[in-house]
């Protein structure tokens, strides 16, 4: 591509040399006016930029879940997450998301407490076909995610309305869960290097079976409340390096 551009520039230089070398009578393909050449240069530059492999690294922090869950559950559920992605060939955003969550609850005299970390790995694709080089992006993508947590359930009832009710404690339980996500969202450059964006997520839990050892945790860090399927939303602020 650069070679092609260099060749065109050299032809232009020859054409502007004037009387020293007379241009052939009809060479419309090789000799162009400065305005045309400038347009060609811009087009070539854009193509070059589009084909570059590495286009920057984004570091983003999620604001929505931290605030929403803290307010909604009055601090009983807390979720913190950050995301690192690189932009490759303008369109592709391989992404790693890391987070930490804790949940606690009480009901019917029983208590639940769990905490753990999660990791999501995947990629987004920029859906802006006409201007992939734009700093803004319309994103769709997929993730594979895992969470590992420790949790305790204490004073859990084993009800019998006729025989006496028993209570059981489950402590120091550990469990890993795996799920997949389809994500869609956008990324907008607010100021140079400063970005904002959101993601909406459809999450499908792969590890649904009950453990033989004890009860399952009802909150999964990064996934939400245990269910076969879940929705999620993130609102990010981020920086591009």
């Amino acid at each position: 591509m650069l070679v092609a551009w260099g060749g065109m520039a050299s032809l232009y230089a020859q054409a502007s040399a004037g009387g020293r070398k007379q241009a052939p009578a009809s060479t419309p393909d090789t000799i162009r006016a400065p305005q045309q050449l400038n347009e060609t240069y811009e087009a070539e530059r854009a193509r070059f930029a589009d084909s570059a492999i590495y286009n920057g690294t984004y570091v983003k922090l999620d604001l929505f879940n931290s605030a929403f869950e803290a307010i909604r559950f009055k601090g009983a559920v807390q979720n913190y997450e950050a995301m690192v992605s690189v932009r490759l060939r303008q369109r592709f955003y391989p992404t790693i998301e890391l987070g930490y969550a804790l949940a606690s609850d009480e009901a019917n005299g029983g208590a639940y407490k769990g905490q753990g970390g999660f990791l999501r790995v995947g990629t987004d694709i920029n859906g802006l076909k006409k201007h992939p080089e734009s700093p803004h992006a319309l994103l769709v993508g997929v993730r594979v995610a895992t969470a590992y947590q420790g949790y305790d359930l204490t004073n859990v009832t084993r009800n019998s309305s006729y025989w006496q009710t028993n209570f059981a404690d489950y402590t120091d339980l550990r469990r890993a869960d795996v799920w997949g996500e389809v994500v869609a969202g956008c990324n907008v450059q607010i100021a140079k290097g400063f970005h904002m964006g959101w993601h909406i997520r459809l999450k499908v839990l792969f590890t649904r079976s009950a453990s033989e050892d004890g009860p399952l945790p009802y909150y999964i860090p990064g996934f939400g409340f245990r269910d076969d399927m879940n929705w999620g939303f993130n609102y990010y602020i981020g920086w591009k390096f």
Binding site: L153, N159, G214
Partner: peptide
Amino acid sequence: TIRFVSLACGQMV
């Protein structure tokens, strides 16, 4: 056979 249902429901046997 004990199955945990939920915190509110406790365990089911």
